[in-house]
Design a protein around this nucleic acid. Structure first.
Length: 403
RNA sequence: CGGGGCAUGGCCUAAUUGGCUAAGGCACCACGUUUGGGACGUGGGGAUUCUGGGUUCGAGUCCCAGUGCCCCGACCA
């Protein structure tokens, strides 16, 4: 991609409403644009990051047997009345059509997928089943805030698993924990599995995946031995002895990037989703639900991985692998070679922009590898990692073989 | 939803006690000079000062109402 053709531009000044780090940096670097509180447009750079994160999530969900689908965002009122959530879920967006019918905009999809599952699941032979989608969700938050961290419209992966027994659900739930940790690790984050409330529709436990950052809105009590509880349900406090290992419990500010629920038979009971077991007996299907806020995850990565100059994208989610800066009129040949070799590169080919501005923009955008061509580099290319100070001179062959 | 703050070209800001044609920077257009850490000169275009009322000879500035955004809290299957 030639930067001279890039739709977005960087900005030296922060937007007056961009008080959070992720909103400020993502807006200044040209990844997102705020439409209103909690609602953002994703510009070309931002869309590339969302796609990168989504693909990581896809790979890991496919790895645990998930099948990707796409459910409607517009839901009939009736399904939400069936589960009682039309009235009880405060954040439900409700809309009225011109013929005065009422609909919900999906904040989550049990009300759609369980009726769908009824059309295909009849026998223990149809179980287990695991379905997921990556889709925009709507939640009428009273206070959207912190950039991408708490939106009213946001991108989410939600997976629903269906099981013939509760034990089978629990086994799958554990597999999902491992898959989630892998996803967050690939996104450059260390997630802490934290015990949390199951919410009002499951009496079972739930587990949140929390990432430590000073700007986080959640508080957890944590011990490195693997003990972690959300403050909401915690029976311990900072300084107490860890019930598992006896060391002192710490208090951490965190962002929740994922949450998994054992829903039991709540929704299968509401919709009468049953199956026939191998003895010919009818039983309710056990359901698990597993969410990752993709756009929130993008914001969380920025909150954790930045410095005074800008964003520091982890390799796997960066919008491009290489940022090639031409400080002379040379560079086109190198760019063409890289493109031909399939290297993901953003080429700063802008002619009327000073070297200093190109470097400042490069740091702000945060692509992990910076290549510079200038008078000083001769027929070599300078390589600098975004998160390192030292530079080295290499040849284009080194770039191609490195990939 | 309770409390607080803010609202001026696309963006960031200024404007004396209420007083002249709303000023500057960024960005944009033209020409020229520049190019290793956010260069510079000259010229140019771009504004119902959030909306609606009110006070006043006169309102960006004061008052009332509304709207939007940000922050704190509550809320957040």
């Amino acid at each position: 991609m030639r930067q001279s053709k890039l739709f977005s531009k960087t900005s030296k000044t922060s937007e007056s409403g961009a008080k959070s780090v992720n909103h400020d940096l993502l807006a200044r670097a040209g990844f997102v644009d705020q439409l209103m509180a909690g609602v953002y447009s994703y510009l070309p750079l931002g869309q590339r990051v969302l796609d990168k994160v989504s693909n990581i999530v896809r790979q890991e969900m496919d790895e645990v047997g998930g099948q990707e689908i796409s459910l409607p965002a517009l839901h009939p009122k009736e399904n939400w009345e069936t589960t009682g959530r039309w009235d009880s879920m405060d954040v439900l967006f409700k809309i009225i059509s011109q013929s005065k019918s009422e609909y919900a905009l999906g904040p989550t999809h049990e009300e759609v997928i369980v009726p769908l599952a009824k059309k295909f699941i009849f026998s223990y032979r149809d179980l287990p089943a695991s379905l997921y989608q990556i889709q925009v969700k709507f939640r009428d938050e009273l206070r959207a805030k912190a950039g991408l961290l708490r939106g009213r419209e946001f991108l989410m992966k939600d997976l629903y698993s269906f099981h013939a027994s509760h034990q089978d659900l629990k086994d799958y739930y554990e597999k999902m924990k491992t898959a989630y940790l892998k996803i967050f690790s690939r996104c450059g984050l260390k997630a802490i599995i934290t015990e949390a409330s199951g919410g009002s529709f499951t009496k079972e436990y739930s587990h949140e995946f929390q990432v430590e950052t000073p700007n986080g809105e959640d508080t957890i009590f944590y011990c490195p031995c693997s003990f972690a509880q959300n403050k909401e349900i915690a029976k311990h406090k900072a300084g107490d002895k860890c019930p598992d290992c006896g060391k002192k419990i710490q208090e951490l500010k965190t962002i929740e990037v994922g949450n998994i629920f054992d829903l039991g038979t709540k929704f299968s009971n509401d919709f009468k989703l049953t199956f026939t077991d191998d003895k010919g007996k009818e039983d309710l299907v056990a359901i698990g639900c597993y969410g990752i806020g993709i756009s929130r995850l993008m914001g969380a990565i920025v909150e954790v991985r930045h410095d005074k100059d800008g964003i520091i994208w982890p390799e796997e989610v960066a919008p491009f692998d290489y940022h090639l800066l031409s400080l002379t009129d040379k560079g086109e040949e190198v760019y063409d070679d890289l493109v031909k070799a399939g290297v993901s590169v953003l080429w700063d080919d802008r002619e009327d922009v000073s070297a200093g501005e190109k470097m400042a923009d490069s740091d702000l955008i945060g692509i992990p590898n910076r290549l510079v061509i200038s008078k000083k580099t001769g027929d070599k290319i300078e390589l600098k990692k975004r998160d390192e100070e030292d530079v080295k001179l290499i040849s284009i062959k080194d770039v191609l073989s490195d990939k």
